[in-house]
Design a protein around this nucleic acid. Structure first.
Lengths: 215, 215
DNA sequence: GAGAGCATTTGAACACGTTCAACTGAACAG
DNA sequence: CTGTTCAGTTGAACGTGTTCAAATGCTCTC
C-alpha cells in the first residue's frame, strides 16, 4: 500500500541518516534498503531535503518533550531558558558528528528543511510554542512590554546557538554548554534591567526594530 | 603558461558566477568557456568551492575599500558602524539574487569558502581589520574594557546581518537596511551605557562569556 | 467481467562535481 | 642528440540527486 511504502522509505531514510550522516546516505541506498525502486522514493518525497526535514521533525519533537519536562518545574526566565537550551544541546548531541552536514542543508533558503520554509512549519511551530510557554510561565513574570516579542527572539537565539554548536569541535560540545550557561543569566538580567529608566529607551528601540524589520 | 591558465579559469569562473549564480555555473561550462579541459580546472582549483572563495575575496576587497572611505570621515561608533555595514549591503547587492546559493556554500563548515576556514583567512582578516579600525578610530573613544573584543563581535554581527540579508526578499533589501539603521545606534547606545554602574556587571559578563567560549 | 481512469512503481537516462590513468611538451642532464 | 623528469593538460569514467516515459496494479463504472 502507498502509505506503508511512504512510512517504510521514511523510517529507512531516518535510520540511515542517523547511522551514516547526510552525504553518505544516498537516495539509491535508501530505496534499496527499503526494497523499492529509486524513483519510488521520489514519488513519496520530493527531494532528499524533504527526507531530512522528516528527521528534523523527529528531533524537534524529542526536544519539545524534554523541554516541557524542564518547564513543568517552574523557575525564573534564566532557569527556564538554560534548561530548555541545554535540553536542546542534549537532544542534538547524537547528531553532532553529522550536524555540520545537516545544518548546511537546513540553512539553504530554498530548502524544504530550512527552519523558515513552509514545509517545516510543523516543527517550527512546535519549537516556537515551547519558547512561548517558556516566557509565559516564568516567575517572576517577564515585563509585559517584552512578553509578545521575546518568545520569537529566544527561538532565534536557539537557532544561533545551534549554528554555534555546529562549529563547536570541543568534546561533548563543552563550549556550546558554556555559551548557554553564560547567555541564559545574561539574557535574564537584561530582561530584568529593561524596566529601569536608563534601559527603557534601549528596550523600546529593540522592540521597535524587531517590528520594523518584521514587516 | 600555468599561471595564465589559472588566472583565465579564475576570471572565467567569477564572470559566470556573477552572470548565472552558483548552481547554474557548472565546472564544465567554466572549463569550456576558458578553453581548457574540465580536469584542468581541477588541477588549479581543488573544487568548485575554492573558486567561490575567489569570488568572496573579490567582494570582500571591494567592501573593504568602500568601508575605509567611510571610516576616513571620522565619526562616532554608531555612524561608523552604520556606514560600514551599509557599504556591505551595497557591495553585496549585486549578488543578492544568488546570495542564497553562495551563503549556503559559505556556511558549510568543511567548505573552503566558510568564513572560518583556513582557505579564506585572507578575506577574513581583511574584513576583521576593517572592524578593528572602525572601533579604534571612533570618537568619542570606545570604553577600554570593550576595545579588545568589540571588533570581533561586530565582525560576527556583520555575518549575522549577511545571513539576514540572504533571507531578505524585500525590494532593494530594504529590511536589511532597516535592521542596520536600527541596530547601529542601539549598539552605540549600549556601548556607551556599558560604563554605567547598573550595566557594568552585564558588560563584564558579556566579555567573560566571549572569552570563556573562545578557549 | 470488461474497460477506463488513476495512483503507484519501475529502472534507464540526464547533468552534475569530482577523480584519474594516460598523454604532452618543455627543461634539464649526460 | 638522447633520455629523464615532471608540471601541465586531457577526456573518459564514477557515483551522485533527480527526472521521466513506460509498466503495473487498484478501483470504480457500465
Amino acid at each position: 500500500m502507498s502509505d506503508d511504502t511512504k512510512a517504510l522509505v521514511r523510517s529507512t531514510a531516518l535510520r540511515l541518516f542517523r547511522e551514516r550522516g547526510y552525504a553518505a546516505t544516498t537516495m539509491r541506498a535508501i530505496a534499496q534498503e527499503a526494497g523499492v525502486a529509486t524513483g519510488n522514493a521520489y514519488y513519496h518525497f520530493a527531494s532528499k531535503d524533504h527526507l531530512v526535514q522528516e528527521l528534523y521533525l523527529d528531533v524537534t519533537s524529542e526536544h519539545a518533550v524534554a523541554a516541557r519536562a524542564v518547564l513543568a518545574q517552574g523557575g525564573d526566565l534564566t532557569a527556564r531558558l538554560r534548561g530548555v537550551m541545554l535540553a536542546g544541546v542534549d537532544a542534538f548531541a547524537e547528531y553532532h558528528a553529522f550536524g555540520a552536514e545537516f545544518v548546511t542543508v537546513a540553512i539553504r533558503p530554498g530548502s524544504a528543511a530550512s527552519p523558515f520554509s513552509a514545509e517545516s512549519s510543523r516543527s517550527r511551530e512546535l519549537s516556537q510554542d515551547v519558547f512561548r510557554e517558556l516566557v509565559e510561565g516564568a516567575s517572576p513574570a517577564v515585563p509585559t512590554a517584552l512578553r509578545e516579542e521575546l518568545p520569537d527572539l529566544l527561538w532565534l537565539a536557539q537557532l544561533g546557538v545551534t549554528l554555534f554548536w555546529v562549529y563547536d569541535g570541543s568534546p561533548g560540545q563543552r563550549r556550546t554548554r558554556t555559551l548557554v550557561e553564560g547567555a541564559a543569566p545574561l539574557i535574564g538580567r537584561l530582561v530584568r534591567l529593561s524596566r529601569l529608566p536608563v534601559l527603557r529607551g534601549a528596550a523600546d528601540d529593540v522592540l521597535a526594530l524587531v517590528r520594523a524589520v518584521r514587516s
